[in-house]
């Protein structure tokens, strides 16, 4: 309400905002609608917007033809598994940097951040060869380790910024009362930090779910998650638009919903606390 606006101007701005938002969102909406068409309706000219025979056949076909559930399972195991283990490593590290900082803590944080900026392609050749020799190609364990490592700096950073907001007095009071370090972390810090830990986990899951460089290069079928599954639709099955749309809808729906819940944390996480 910064400036007094006339009613006309206000309606204009509202309409404009809705048009812009609709255009940005449209490709997702269009994919969703197309997923309920028959293949023939999907490529019909002129396009059929809402009046066609809505069908669920593509969703069944996607499961039958390409075993969608297996890829979904891999995505879930990878994005949750890698980050649960990631949290187990990151929470203690973030605790120690937030509550028992040394002279070099800031440098350490900056260094961790810088590891996130290594382009994946710089590590592709050795990781690929190592994985080949260790028989880790196309294994959930192998890809999971990579996902854990690429998210670890982000986990530590986000947790650190959340922990910093917890008053240190409370932890010291617990310490005075004779709580051991383990109890202090488990029973005093963790409950207070649950919202922060949950947000961190959410963002990390989203990023892992959508990660496509390593999953495309390190998996073929057994351990392939959804990004690789969709890539298999590039040819020749890309011509089946309705099925591509159904597969895409299934692949992005869960993360879209999670993402909508975590907008605020997203800003903090992705800018490493530089914008709050």
């Amino acid at each position: 309400m910064a400036m007094k606006q006339s009613t006309g101007k206000r309606i204009g701005v509202t309409v404009l905002a809705w048009v812009v938002a609709f255009l940005i969102f449209f490709p997702i909406l269009w994919t969703f609608i197309t997923s309920f068409k028959s293949e023939l309706d999907a490529i019909a000219m002129p396009p059929k917007f809402l009046f066609f025979n809505w069908t669920l056949e593509n969703y069944f076909a996607v499961q039958e033809r390409s075993n969608y559930l297996k890829f979904a399972y891999n995505s879930i195991v990878l994005s949750i598994g890698a980050n649960v283990f990631g949290l187990l490593i990151a929470v203690p590290a973030a605790w120690s940097m937030a509550f028992a900082p040394g002279k070099r803590t800031k440098d350490l944080l900056m260094w961790m951040l810088s590891t996130k900026m290594m382009p994946a392609v710089g590590a592709l050749v050795p990781i690929y060869l190592l994985f080949r020799d260790l028989h880790l190609l196309d294994s959930l364990f192998g890809v999971g380790v990579v996902l854990l490592l690429i998210n670890l700096p982000l986990l530590i950073w986000m947790l650190y910024t959340y922990f910093k907001e917890i008053p240190v007095d409370i932890l010291e009071a617990a310490r005075m009362d004779g709580a051991s370090l383990l109890n202090e972390i488990l029973y005093v810090l963790t409950p207070m930090a649950v919202p922060g830990i949950a947000s961190t986990m959410l963002l990390a899951v989203i990023l892992s779910w959508n990660e496509a460089f390593w999953t495309l290069n390190l998996t073929t079928s057994n351990a392939a998650p959804l990004p690789a599954f969709i890539a298999s639709y590039s040819a020749p099955e890309g011509f089946f638009w309705a099925k591509l749309s159904a597969a895409s809808t299934l692949a992005i729906a869960p993360i879209l919903i999670l993402g909508w819940f975590s907008q605020k944390q997203l800003v903090r996480g992705l800018t490493f606390g530089a914008v709050k």
Partner: peptide
């Protein structure tokens, strides 16, 4: 904000 959460391979093929 929605497009940001779409898997890159999905965006590209759609």
């Amino acid at each position: 904000i929605a497009p940001f959460f779409v898997i890159p391979t999905v965006s590209a093929l759609v």
